[in-house]
């Protein structure tokens, strides 16, 4: 009885997993067919991968890839610096001020992306911000920084407040205590905040699409996919690109998480001893 139930549960888990990954796997398999109709008419070929580099769309595509990384790099670095300092400042505040700021910080996270996107657009248009990178980078900083604050704050909270005081006690002035003790201790939070900001920025579609401005022709990867594939469907080279993205991202996220889980297990083990 119990065995049957266990089997049933495992089957259920497997079916859902299969459905989740079926599209991904199909895309990867047919990326080697150089076709858009899920048939191996030309047999197994790398043609689709080659066309990433030499089709007429390649320049626009690579331009979009470049933009994606440029915007992600600039906005996540700024978001990390501003957000980390903000977290230290918020943490040092009184209870009331802190609650207000934490709520404001929470807002871009809970808010619907479309509302955030159009509100920024109205703002940019009204105050005549130049179209292009400036708008996009500001918008990306605006939605990434709260996540940095959120990943740094818990590190500050879990820190023994006496540790900072111990540095002062041992003769470090407040600035040295900050650099030599506080920052090293919250570094894990800062790093994960940065990684989060970077991926969020790279992944964004809605806010970028609405704020990129029609006239500039700036595209990130996601807005370029949207404009290109919305109308005529996916050309074979998209299959290749998607496959690369799937494999890279899934491998990256999986290893990052497994490493984290392993480390936690190890810590638990050490803690037990």
């Amino acid at each position: 009885m119990v065995k049957v139930k266990g089997l049933f549960e495992k089957a259920y888990l497997f079916v859902i997993l299969a459905i989740l990954y079926a599209p991904i796997l199909l895309i990867i398999v047919y990326s080697f067919s150089n076709s858009s109709n899920f048939r191996f008419d030309e047999g197994f070929t790398f043609e689709a991968y080659i066309s990433i580099f030499n089709s007429e769309k390649s320049p626009a595509l690579w331009d979009a890839v470049g933009n994606t990384f440029l915007i992600a790099a600039v906005s996540s670095v700024i978001a990390t610096v501003v957000g980390s300092f903000a977290a230290i400042g918020i943490f040092a505040m009184g209870r009331k001020a802190r609650r207000v700021l934490e709520n404001v910080n929470q807002f871009p996270i809970i808010n619907s992306e479309i509302v955030m996107a159009v509100s920024l657009m109205i703002f940019f248009v009204t105050f005549a911000f130049p179209e292009g990178y400036l708008r996009l980078i500001i918008a990306h900083i605006a939605f990434c920084t709260p996540y940095v604050v959120l990943s740094v704050l818990p590190k500050l909270e879990s820190m023994d407040p006496n540790v900072y005081e111990a540095a002062l006690d041992l003769g470090a002035n407040p600035f040295k205590a900050l650099v030599k003790v506080l920052f090293p201790m919250i570094t894990p939070g800062i790093v994960s905040g940065f990684v989060l900001a970077f991926t969020l920025s790279m992944d964004d579609f809605i806010i970028t699409q609405i704020n990129k401005g029609a006239s500039t022709g700036i595209n990130t990867l996601s807005t370029y996919i949207y404009s290109d594939a919305r109308v005529q469907g996916l050309e074979p080279f998209w299959y290749a690109i998607f496959s690369i993205i799937f494999v890279v991202i899934l491998a990256l996220v999986l290893t990052l998480n497994l490493v984290r889980i392993n480390r936690r297990k190890q810590q638990e083990k050490e803690g037990a001893i």
């Binding site: 023994d160 006496n162 005081e165 111990a166 090293p184 201790m185």
Partner: peptide
């Protein structure tokens, strides 16, 4: 000062 929970620098 010697602190209650030691407050050693973990890094």
């Amino acid at each position: 000062t010697v602190f209650q929970k030691y407050a050693l620098f973990p890094h």
